[in-house]
Write a protein that binds this DNA or RNA. Structure first.
Lengths: 370, 370
DNA sequence: CTAAGGTGTT
DNA sequence: AACACCTTAG
């Protein structure tokens, strides 16, 4: 059976708000790791993947894996009956066709209980290849929302181009064309300089502008410690797939395969941080963990709420449907930042990472662009 | 002629907002006591009764009773032209077919004047039996709004059940079922204990904390009670009409329900004597003043803006159309609290009491419930 | 975080 | 009129 107690019903409400227009029905795959949802959008163009880790719950118990087939419209309705700060408990018996939701007002005598019918849904769990991307743009989620909303007024598509200049969002419409350029934020770790994405693995094929080889002291920045402040926080290294997303349990079975963990280091912790210091022989073997905690709070560059971080190994230029991006951007309420991960001719990954989970969208580029 | 000066146009605006979807046309019955409106909703299922006492006006003059037939849509439009804090004066000549509205900005030289056409409306003044209720639930009006709004997402009906446990609102729908339980607020006069309704009498709306009759009978609970309810109703003595609502301008009374007094003359008399005649039906004039001292803490219970107060003599369980309750709950902007008065198989009374008046709704239960 | 007000949209 | 969205004030 499942019993999952969420401190704030608001999280679930926001998640549902974010995806309910994209997907009508989906399986909530519950297992001891947490709750995962993965679904194609109704027109089979986009893919959404949601995870709430077990640790993200106030209490979590799931004896054995069970898929809960949920009509998201129904769940949205039921969740509308909860206040954001209600404590929300999800319960389901094994093989049950009902999901029980209990809302406890934080401070009152009010207890609301709902039971929602479940349904059988063919779970076409799609394995998502763990792609390595040529470019990653991290920007405030509200900035992203604004950009796609603005451009959607002009045209239907947006070309996203990452170059040394920065990241450009360009759209063409009948009435007008628009182009928005975001430069790397000055004062950031890289001092405004666009850095290379490091490969996740030991692959050094990418052009790293600088190397983590650096000693711990300045491993934070390219510039000579001009911005030391950052350093103190987490060890920032421009790398890879998901620095903020600690969870590397990529959706699908793919991650399960464990192929990904090419940990040069034997430490999972580190690897999960995406900070791979192959030669970190130096001092810290453990500090990585520390960084993790600190980052959960704030202070990590990636958590800088206002900055734009651009990492790239290669120029990318891709065109996407704005309609979907606008839809994705609804998740902005879940996280201050969003990451756009791109490689040419590969689906875009739009990732929002929050405390103990994430919501990620994949969208194939339009062809014939660029 | 009528001349009624309202300190705040906002009151009228809110009243109109509250009922305009329920009723399209209605007579504003003006007499020396104040302005009263009573109408069945368009589908003749619910009844709404609005009163603004003469004392509720900054100035009030009404030489003789006059009904003003108003199209509520028109009045709403005209009232939209007033700011909430405008001083609003209503004027009508005898036999006039025009209503004059003057808005004076509180602090400026602005004077706006509108005249609205009146219409003749057959006044089917329905007598409302002065029922004594088996249960009264007093709760914050926003809480009530929230509950009915939430449940209306799920189903069309709500079963309201008052028991020793508290008051439960339960609804069943296709997608989900919901149940909200409100317990008596701790720390209230009764310390969380659900008290019996006090009898009608000259009490000033106070609740008796300890009712001597509380322990002596069965009517508080038991399965038998439910079957005896009909019978008991006739003999029940612990009933309350309206503790807070002193105005007894009810049309008709249980005692005289055989006769509908629609006559202006007798009506006026009743209203003018309302306060005095209150005791006429109640044999016992048990003073409830005592209770007042015991409830020192939060002041008057009915003024406690956040608490839930439950008074009952007998378990009640009734089912109502949520659509109407949602409509009623719009009046929440007029008062912090709302009272639900119920007896089995009798129309629910939803009462909002504000400074010098009230808005009350009556809704017949659905049959075949419970 | 909630409530309220304003806007735009269907 | 209702809903969704955003901003603002408390």
């Amino acid at each position: 059976m499942l019993e999952a107690k969420l401190q704030e019903a608001g999280l679930l409400k926001k998640l549902l708000d974010a995806i309910k227009e994209l997907v009508t029905d989906a399986n909530f795959e519950c297992n001891e790791e947490g709750i995962n949802l993965q679904a194609m959008d109704n027109s089979h163009v986009a893919l959404v993947s949601v995870l709430i880790q077990a640790a993200g719950f106030k209490r979590y118990r799931c004896d054995r894996p069970m898929p809960l087939g949920v009509n998201l419209g129904s769940l949205t309705k039921v969740l509308k009956c909860a206040k954001d700060d209600d404590i929300c408990t999800l319960k389901a018996a094994d093989e049950a066709d009902l999901l029980n939701l209990v809302y406890e007002a934080k401070n009152s005598d009010r207890i609301a209980e709902y039971e929602m019918k479940l349904m059988d849904i063919d779970s076409d769990q799609l394995g998502i290849p763990e792609t390595e991307y040529d470019a990653r743009v991290t920007l405030p989620s509200n900035e992203f929302s604004r950009i796609v909303r603005d451009l959607s007024l002009l045209g239907e598509s947006v070309r996203i181009e990452v170059s040394k200049e920065g990241v450009r969002f360009a759209s063409e419409g009948e009435a007008a064309n628009g182009s928005i350029l975001l430069r790397q934020t000055e004062g950031s770790i890289s001092g405004g300089k666009i850095v290379a994405l490091s490969k996740d693995g030991d692959d050094d094929g990418e052009v790293k502008e600088e190397d983590d080889e650096e000693e711990n002291e300045d491993d934070d920045e390219d510039e000579e410690g001009s911005k030391k402040k950052k350093k103190s926080k987490g060890k920032k290294e421009k790398k890879v797939k998901k620095e903020d997303g600690d969870e590397d349990e990529e959706m699908g079975d793919v991650d399960e395969d464990g192929e990904e963990e090419q940990d040069d280091e034997s430490e999972d912790e580190e690897e999960s941080n995406g900070k791979k210091r192959k030669k970190k022989a130096s001092s810290s073997s453990k500090p990585a963990k520390k960084a993790k905690t600190s980052k959960s709070k704030k202070g990590d560059d990636d958590d800088d709420t206002s900055g734009v971080l651009i990492e790239m190994n290669q120029h990318v230029s891709l065109t996407f449907s704005l309609k979907y991006l606008v839809n994705f951007s609804k998740s902005g309420s879940l996280a201050n930042k969003v990451q756009l991960m791109m490689s040419n001719d590969v689906p875009l990954l739009v990732a929002y990472e929050f405390d103990q989970g994430h919501i990620r969208y994949y969208l194939a580029p339009k062809i014939g662009d660029d």
